[in-house]
Amino acid sequence: MISKTKRFARSVGVAIAATAAVTMVMPTSNAFAIDHVECRGGENFLKIWSHLDGRTSVDCYANKGRTGFGSWWVDRISTGNNDLIYYDANGDSVRINRWTDITFPNHPPRVKDIEIL
């Protein structure tokens, strides 16, 4: 009987230790991933008009996170319901608040990364 009790106690101890180890390793904050999504009318996504080497693009993004933008020249940004930081090729970061529509007709920034806050 004593050996069964010791085995049970040891099993419980191992289970508690394993649970504690997993709890300590898991991240404590919510995980978010920015998503490149299909642009649709009526949605409040981040929308960016850009160009590079004779090509033009219109891209939409949703959800919190940061992603590379490929150093494209940005002509217009509509933030929708997203707060945005863009990181340009000069190393600057620029914050644009939600519900903002901004154009860059003469001196567009060359954007390396974008981040939805």
Results as ranks from 00 to 15, higher is better:
G91R: 01
V25L: 13
A9V: 10
E38P: 05
L46Y: 01
F45I: 02
A62N: 10
T5P: 06
G70V: 03
K47E: 08
A17Y: 03
S78I: 07
N44M: 12
I16G: 12
M24G: 02
I85H: 00
N63F: 05
I102Q: 03
W49A: 04
T79H: 02
W49Y: 08
I2A: 13
A62G: 03
A33R: 03
M1L: 15
S71P: 11
A33S: 07
T67C: 12
I48R: 05
L84H: 01
G13Y: 03
Y86N: 03
I85T: 08
D88W: 05
G42Y: 10
D53V: 12
V94C: 02
T100N: 07
T28I: 14
I96E: 00
D83P: 09
D83K: 01
T100A: 08
S50D: 01
P108N: 05
S11Q: 13
V12C: 10
N63T: 14
I77E: 00
N44P: 11
P27Y: 14
I96V: 07
D59G: 12
E115H: 05
I34A: 12
D75T: 06
A20F: 07
T56N: 08
A33F: 05
F104L: 14
D88P: 06
I114K: 02
G65E: 04
N63E: 07
C60H: 06
G41F: 11
Y87H: 02
R110V: 15
P108Y: 02
R95N: 05
D88V: 02
D35G: 05
C39K: 06
K47N: 04
D101I: 01
D75P: 03
F45C: 06
K47G: 03
F104I: 09
V25D: 12
D75W: 06
A20W: 05
N44K: 12
D59W: 02
H51W: 12
A15M: 15
G80P: 10
T23Y: 11
R95C: 00
T100H: 06
D88M: 07
T28C: 04
G70R: 02
P108Q: 03
H36W: 09
S78P: 00
E115A: 14
P105D: 07
A18M: 14
T103D: 11
I102C: 01
A89E: 15
R110F: 14
G41E: 13
V22N: 08
T103Q: 07
W99Y: 12
N82E: 08
A20R: 07
P109D: 04
P27D: 08
N90T: 10
T100D: 03
G41C: 06
M24Y: 05
R76T: 15
A31F: 13
P105R: 06
D92Y: 10
I96C: 00
R55G: 07
G42I: 15
P105V: 09
R10C: 14
M24P: 00
W99R: 07
I34F: 09
T23M: 12
S11E: 13
M24A: 11
R7F: 15
G91D: 00
L46H: 00
V94K: 04
